[in-house]
Amino acid sequence: MKLLLRDVVKRYGGLHALDGLTLEIEDTNCLALIGPSGGGKSTTLRLVSGLEAPTSGCLLVDGEEIGNDFERRRQFRKQVGIVFQAYNLFPHMTALANVALPLEKVHGYPKADAIQKARSLFERFQLEDHMLKKPAELSGGQNQRVAIARAMAPDPDIIFLDEPTSALDPEMTVEVLDAIYSLIETDKRIVIATHQMGFAQRAADTVALIAEGKLVEAGSSNQVIENPQTIRGQKFLAACLDR
């Protein structure tokens, strides 16, 4: 996928979440956004996934402008999948309905086909036993895998994941990371904001380090994580290794 952000600014009230971010990624299958909390990587993800419009600046995904037009962003969101930190499943529906309903209502599948497709995804993620449970009855890791199933059900062009393991304990984190690895193996294209440096290095082919609302550096995952070129990057990665 190709990604181009030029002088992107995003303000929430007085807060500058992004302060003139420029990022150009030529060709990547898995891009990881890393950086300190509050530095702007989640905001970047929300913009490139079409959830929100930038305050100013230019934003292209695969050569397609997805900036300010409300309807265009909705069309774009239909073509991609998004996974959130807090799963954001609908609590009043079963796990199966959470996955099948968008297929039926947004993507026009006949109801039986939608359910069939959702079922096969539950089998793939070893969630068959939990299909008819509500999100409140599932663990965090199970919920997040349901959320991943929901995001990938309509065969999206790209899947965006916003810190998908940050709310999980280490064992559940492994569960969810395994599910993400399996997405990458099936050649799904992925953009992921994450604090898991090990995962970013292994799974991503490109890494962008974002801090204080700007791009610090970007490049191949090995290069950025092992050998950061900027002082800000060295400081951040040293802090990550300390843990």
Binding site: L51, F84, F90, L101, P102
Partner: peptide, 21 residues
């Protein structure tokens, strides 16, 4: 709010968000 964001992310229209979420 997270529910609304989620509805947005799966491409629900405003009517669908109201009706199903």
């Amino acid at each position: 709010k997270s529910q609304l964001l989620s509805a947005k992310s799966i491409g629900f229209s405003e009517y669908q968000t109201f009706r199903y979420v």
